[in-house]
Design a binder for these strands. Structure first.
Lengths: 214, 214
DNA sequence: GGCTTGCACGTACGGCGTACGTCCGTCAAT
DNA sequence: ATTGACGGACGTACGCCGTACGTGCAAGCC
């Protein structure tokens, strides 16, 4: 049985699989090797160390997002589409999301979304300074939203679970929180995300545009 | 020499100190114990496990932020002030920031900022549903911004450092990125943060307000 | 004095990342 | 056909990690 030869790609795939099945904490070189039916140290023939492997995971996930950009559409639609495309990560690879947003990628995988976004914003008439500013703002919002969605950051209902009975929160100390507890306890991530995106788009749409494209 | 008795508070303080000095990776029970001149297992008399200790760190940092809320100020000013207060975390405890935003806190420490924010938004005339929505949106933006600021998330200039010469980015493939490289490479976090906050405030200020406060 | 209680501490176990050395199959040059 | 170099798979070993468990000691109570 000529088992498929080991390769960086296969290793990364196994890592992603493992993360999605058992969470990021379950990832160890030994575990991945076991998953592949291979000795631990064999991995190091294809990957310099664990950190690089995790970067590989982040890149792989990132490069899977499907940008279907229509250059003829209105720029607001294009921005909306790109934001949503990025959010696919949270759906397709929820437990890898943290990895994707928290690693500095020095490869082209990380540059493509940036390039697309900047092109869209420039085509909308923003100069370089504003395009970068707006992009950074969107990224901050999207990253924060994804983290909430995959449960890294709280909904900022610490009443997420675990304290179903709102007895734990003193209504005298926290009247608003306890009054709005039902609203805080549930979160429609789709709606929540879109609400923010629309608000942001609307906000930047009225941003005064300078002339000198520089 | 009656050395100060060990206590949860002292342990948490040592942990924060260690994180800020050497980064979150340097934190281990052994290391903290050594820092306190104490046996490793003594820590477990005051803290059930490492995870709980890290929660303690997050709570301690979170509860240090100074909210100076002026109920008479215009709500837009109050929102601005609260957003900035939260951002103090990144300044006062940069290397603990990740911990603060990524841990689900089931204590009052995490509820106080939420309570303040909700109260402010309600006083501005938002009903419960909108207040929660807007709050979530702000939190997402702030969390994302803080992570960028403390270097967890890239500026989304992967050209942050390490690739000073923009030869690594192919101008043919990434015209915008390479054209805007100087802008992407530097980031004035103060200005960037305020830009977003102002945009958000402005956006929600024009949000239609429903009547029925329910 | 005896007894309980609480805390500091040592030892030990299983798991981690990875440096290093070994072994073996393949293939080019002889 | 023989040899030699080479690349990849693997085992061993080291120094870390979190923490379960047991021991010993000092203070407070009867």
């Amino acid at each position: 049985m000529p088992t498929e030869p080991l390769s960086r790609t296969r290793i990364v795939a196994a890592a992603i699989d493992l993360i999605e099945r058992e969470g990021a904490d379950a990832v160890s070189m030994r575990r991945i090797a076991a998953e592949l039916g291979v000795g631990v140290m064999s991995l190091y023939n294809h990957v310099p160390n664990k950190d690089a492997l995790l970067n590989g995971v982040a890149e792989a996930v990132l490069s899977q997002i499907e940008f279907t950009d229509d250059p003829d559409a209105h720029w607001t639609d294009r921005v909306r589409m790109q934001a949503r495309a990025f959010r696919q990560i949270a759906h397709g690879h929820p437990r890898s999301t943290m990895l994707v947003v928290s690693r500095q990628l020095h490869s082209n995988a990380g540059l493509l979304p940036v390039e697309r976004a900047l092109a869209t914003l420039r085509s909308a008439g923003f100069d370089g300074v504003d395009a970068v500013r707006v992009l950074r703002m969107f990224i901050a919002y999207i990253v924060g939203s994804l983290l909430r969605e995959v449960g890294v950051t709280p909904t900022f209902a610490p009443l997420h679970r675990h304290m179903v009975n709102p007895d734990d929160v003193d209504p005298a100390l926290f009247p608003e929180v306890s009054g709005l507890a039902p609203l805080l306890a549930s979160c429609d991530h789709d709606a929540e995300f879109d609400f923010g995106v629309e608000l942001l788009i609307q906000a930047i749409a009225v941003l005064p545009k300078r002339e000198g494209t520089r």
